[in-house]
Amino acid sequence: MSGLPIYWMAIVLMMVGLYTVIARDNLVKKIMGLNLFQVAVIMLYVSMGKVEEGTAPILDHGHLPEGFQHFSNPLPHVLMLTAIVVGVATTALGLALAVRIKEEYGTVEEDEIVLMDQALERGEG
């Protein structure tokens, strides 16, 4: 086994998320899966910023704090702030759509919705 355990964690989390999207018919659960998937990526990024033996990137009177040779990289954290915002927006929109679908179809199970749509199309054709 090579690589840092944190990468493997991220990959496992990612797979769990993707699997949920694929395997669950419930639209709300799909959104949850999507969330897991995104969180995994956020963790991957955040872990990148960590520099071994590094400290928080704050200058102490123009110098590195006592006993540290490096700073950790702050940029990935900053990037992930944006990604989290995107994730929140996506989740909100997804859930809003799920609510509207529930109102219109009376269910949030995708297989049932597909059947209802197909029946509608056959009726028209």
Binding site: L18, V21, I22, A23, D25, K30, E110, D111, V114, Q118, E121, G125
Partner: peptide, 20 residues
């Protein structure tokens, strides 16, 4: 044709598998 595997979009799960 509509209703056939290539004439109609797949459910989300299948589409995600395709992406994988």
């Amino acid at each position: 044709s509509p209703g056939g595997p290539l004439g109609e979009p797949w459910p989300i799960g299948a589409a995600a598998i395709a992406a994988a």
